[in-house]
């Protein structure tokens, strides 16, 4: 069975280590916070200006001056701090944030990512995505392996306008965990019940399969 969005988030949460400052993108990445082990210390950064982001407020306690990058009302945890946008991106470009998790419309086998524009259709802007992917050492992409028509989103080359070049190193899709090394996708894990054949079929880019591929654990 292909993973649900929650299960993708749950698998990614295993990559979040003790002591990490983490930036979560909008969509599936936001869900990762729900699955991070509670016996480790992690701080979530939202690029609009908070470190130590907490869960949504209780009804009636929402504060219009306290939102995340998705413009949702949030809370601040003990130890949190606020800062301005220039400093926030100083943290990001200066590689002080340990892990960036974001969504993608397409990823290519050399690590290019496209997630901000469909020419003529969707022009919403890149927000902070270009700054994040250009700077982060450790990027995990959360995405669906194929589009609604069943076409692969893991490609030899991206067809959409790029967000960043040669920056993605790890992907968690609804079918598999993959790494990008030397310009090729490498299959690391498969979703429970999903065969290696199915993953090969769903991947347009070059895919290296070495030995037995184990099922993901959560």
């Amino acid at each position: 069975m292909a993973l649900s969005k929650e299960q993708i988030a749950q698998r990614i949460a295993k990559e979040v280590k003790d002591g990490y400052y983490v930036n979560l993108g909008i969509g599936i990445p936001t869900l990762v916070a729900n699955f991070v082990r509670n016996d480790i210390s992690v701080e979530f950064q939202s690029e609009n200006g908070i470190l130590g982001m907490g869960p949504f407020p209780f009804e009636g306690e929402e504060d219009p001056d306290l939102i995340n990058a998705g413009k949702q009302t949030i809370t601040a945890l003990p130890g949190a701090s606020f800062f301005d946008s220039a400093m926030s991106f100083g943290m990001i470009r200066g590689q002080h944030v340990d892990l960036t998790i974001l969504g993608a419309m397409e990823v290519s086998q050399n690590g290019d990512i496209a997630n901000w524009k469909i020419p003529g259709k969707m022009v919403k802007g890149m927000g902070g995505a270009m700054d994040l992917v250009a700077s982060a050492e450790n990027i995990i992409v959360a995405m669906m392996h194929t589009n609604r028509e069943g076409e692969s989103k893991l490609l030899k080359e991206c067809s959409l306008p790029l967000t960043g070049v040669k920056c993605v190193k790890k992907i968690v899709s609804n079918l598999a965990v993959l790494e990008i090394v030397d310009g090729k996708f490498h299959l690391l894990e498969r979703a429970p019940g999903v065969s290696v054949q199915e993953i090969i079929k769903a991947t347009e880019g070059d895919l290296i399969v070495n030995g037995t591929i184990k099922e993901m654990e959560f």
């Binding site: 949504f56 407020p57 209780f58 009804e59 929402e62 998705g70 413009k71 949702q72 949030i74």
Partner: peptide, 12 residues
């Protein structure tokens, strides 16, 4: 007015 764009809350 300080309008909220995306009101997201937890239930008690």
């Amino acid at each position: 007015e300080k309008r909220i764009e995306q009101l997201t809350v937890r239930k008690r």
